[in-house]
Computed example of a mutant assay.
Amino acid sequence: MERDQTATPPEAERDSAANPAREPAFNLPAGLTFILLFLIAIHVLRTYVLPPAIDQEIIFNFAFLPARYDHPLAEQGLAWLWSPVTYSFLHGSWEHLIFNIFWMVAFGAPVVRRIGMGRLAVFWCLSAAAAVALHTAFHWGEMIVVVGASGVVSGFMGAAARFVFSPSGRISRQFAHLNRRLDVGEALANRSVVVFAGIWFLTNFLIGLGMFTPGGAGSVAWEAHIGGFLFGFLLFSLFDPRD
């Protein structure tokens, strides 16, 4: 995101180990493939087709602005209503979009396989809103333009942490969605989950200090990343059809 800027079934595990060729390196759910193509199409349209003036209108009406909520809602348009979701379909650059696609492929795929497209649509909207809600708490009333799917990607990461790790701590890309979901207490007691979450939070705190980001902390809405992750981690059971 940028500022404008049940364990795996034993037989399946054995089959995967004995026949590694059956687990392709690139095997995405059709629904996730559609989402990625949609994000790419939007960025192509904004970058190469629409004139700059129209693109600025799109940013103003569909990107997220904390400043909107410091003014009476009745005195402005309805962008305050949909922008907590629509900002997640816009990106600041190709690098920004490709970075989000990479992590969405890694962590979005098992989540989509597990919950299906209907629940995914709700998860996407609510995780996007939760991400910018925390961001707004730190930047109330500021004229900061927030775009990107990083908050949702962080939500995928938080959700995936509840089920993708096998007892050995490894991740099987093809069968991770079949694992038993850990409750929050079990997840916090799982070494693999704790290490994964610890590295993730440390990285984002360092981003907040201006590290790991060419543009400095001001170019990354790192608070929104944390909001999305906490949403996915704490509330994933509401979307998970498996016990």
Rank of each mutant, 00 (worst) to 15 (best):
T6S: 13
A7S: 14
P9G: 02
A12S: 11
A12Y: 12
A18D: 14
A18M: 10
E23Q: 09
E23K: 01
A30D: 07
I35G: 10
L36K: 00
L37V: 10
F38Q: 03
L39G: 04
L45F: 13
V49Q: 11
E57H: 07
L65C: 07
L65V: 04
A67K: 13
D70R: 04
P72A: 13
A74T: 10
E75P: 09
E75Y: 05
Q76T: 01
Y87M: 01
H96Y: 10
L97Q: 00
I98D: 07
N100P: 00
F102N: 08
A106T: 14
A106H: 01
A106D: 08
F107V: 11
A109R: 08
R113H: 12
R114S: 02
R114P: 05
R114W: 11
G116R: 05
G116M: 02
M117I: 13
G118D: 00
G118M: 10
V122F: 12
W124L: 13
W124V: 03
C125A: 15
C125G: 15
L126W: 06
A129W: 03
A133Y: 10
A133D: 05
F138A: 13
H139T: 11
M143Q: 14
I144M: 11
G148H: 02
G148V: 04
G155M: 06
G158T: 01
G158R: 08
A159H: 10
A159K: 06
R162N: 07
G169R: 02
G169Q: 07
R173N: 13
Q174K: 14
F175I: 03
A176Y: 08
A176Q: 03
A176F: 09
H177W: 14
H177S: 12
R181K: 11
L182V: 02
V184C: 08
V194A: 11
F196K: 01
F201A: 11
L202F: 13
N204M: 12
F212L: 15
F212T: 03
F212H: 13
G218P: 01
S219W: 02
A221G: 13
W222H: 07
H225P: 01
H225R: 03
I226L: 15
I226C: 04
G227C: 05
F229G: 02
F236N: 07
S237N: 14
F239K: 05
D240T: 05
P241F: 02
R242P: 00
R242H: 14
